[in-house]
């Protein structure tokens, strides 16, 4: 009986999301709809979302929206705290006790939801909060990495740079720290340190992860980048793809991918961001070779088209970018 009531109303609400007019109309009559649904289903909006939406991006996104729009002081404070706690991201071991469990407790109290009758609700809401907070936390961590400039005096940085060379060119010895050899893997000059610029250490970590975890694929891309006509500068293009991955993350476009990932893995980690990067770099190489550009001057045109394609896929609720590793066996 309940389902019969929920489904048509849910569809009605979904249609209302389209367009600005319907959006403002929806905002206007939202309290009325909520009241009406609450009366007849005896469930709060959060419960209806948790029970009625498929697990993954769709559910997490709607729960996030519901929390953000709530007028209840306790929930508003919770939203404020979630935002506040991302400015200094907490350690992984504290995510559950300090953020998720507390948030669930707050909601259950504020909404007067009896865990006896709704045993599933708390667990499901916890998963939503984990994904929502996890994404915000990841944005901050990635931003911190981006803001750390490459420093030639820092031994850890220098070590990573050399490791990148060894992963990509295992058979060629680097003659010196400052050498034209860097251009072979696609840096601009004889000292890569200035090429990281706005992406800082994040650009290096991304490239290093790719070359370490997928050495075969990385060398395959390197051989593409040395192609006489379709050649490109691998490291520089890699740093530009870091920029793209960061933009997608920061703007929230990548939420669909990361929320769907959270459905399986819980809160996202830096490793998940590296994986996302690897997917983008690998797919960009594919896209570039297929575009058959005349020379590297076409990079921006091709990159803009590639980004549009990725944004389009991200709009799908089921979006989940996965590396196709067939190349690894070559």
């Amino acid at each position: 009986m309940l389902r019969f009531l929920i489904i048509p109303v849910k569809d009605f609400i979904n249609k209302m999301y389209f367009g600005d007019f319907f959006n403002s109309l929806y905002l206007f009559i939202r309290p009325l709809i909520k009241w009406f649904l609450h009366r007849f289903t005896n469930l709060s909006e959060l419960q209806r979302l948790v029970y009625g939406c498929q697990d993954g991006y769709r559910r997490y996104k709607l729960v996030e929206r519901s929390l953000n729009m709530s007028k209840r002081p306790q929930i508003r404070h919770l939203v404020y705290c979630l935002e506040e706690r991302t400015s200094q991201p907490i350690a992984e071991m504290h995510i559950h006790p300090e953020i998720v469990n507390r948030a669930v407790h707050t909601v259950v109290l504020a909404k007067k939801i009896n865990p006896k009758y709704h045993p599933e609700f708390s667990d499901q809401l916890a998963r939503c909060i984990e994904a929502i907070y996890g994404y915000k936390r990841l944005v901050t961590i990635i931003d911190q990495m981006r803001l750390e400039p490459y420093d030639s005096e820092n031994h850890a940085h220098e070590h990573k740079l050399k490791a990148l060379w060894n992963n990509l060119m295992p058979d060629v010895k680097l003659e010196a720290r400052i050498t034209k050899q860097w251009q072979e893997i696609g840096f601009q000059g004889d000292d890569p340190s200035t090429d990281f610029r706005g992406m800082g250490i994040l650009g290096l970590e991304n490239l290093l992860y790719f070359s370490r975890e997928y050495p075969g694929t990385a060398r395959h891309l390197l051989s593409h980048s040395q192609h006489p006509t379709y050649g490109y500068t691998l490291a520089v293009v890699g740093i530009n793809i870091t920029h793209m991955a960061w933009r997608l993350l920061k703007s929230g476009i990548a939420k669909s991918h990361f929320y769907n990932l959270s459905k399986i893995h819980g809160y996202p980690t830096v490793e998940h961001f590296h994986q996302f990067y690897c997917y983008l770099l690998y797919e960009f190489d594919h896209f570039w070779m297929n575009a058959k550009p005349n020379n590297l001057m076409e990079f921006n045109n091709v990159q803009v088209k590639f980004e549009k394609a990725i944004v389009k896929v991200s709009e799908r609720e089921s979006c989940h970018f996965k590396m196709n590793l067939s190349v690894e066996s070559i």
């Binding site: 610029r197 992406m199 500068t233 520089v236 590297l296 076409e298």
Partner: peptide, 11 residues
Amino acid sequence: PHITTPTAGFN
């Protein structure tokens, strides 16, 4: 303006 990457191609 300062968040840039090396320009591959042109802007």
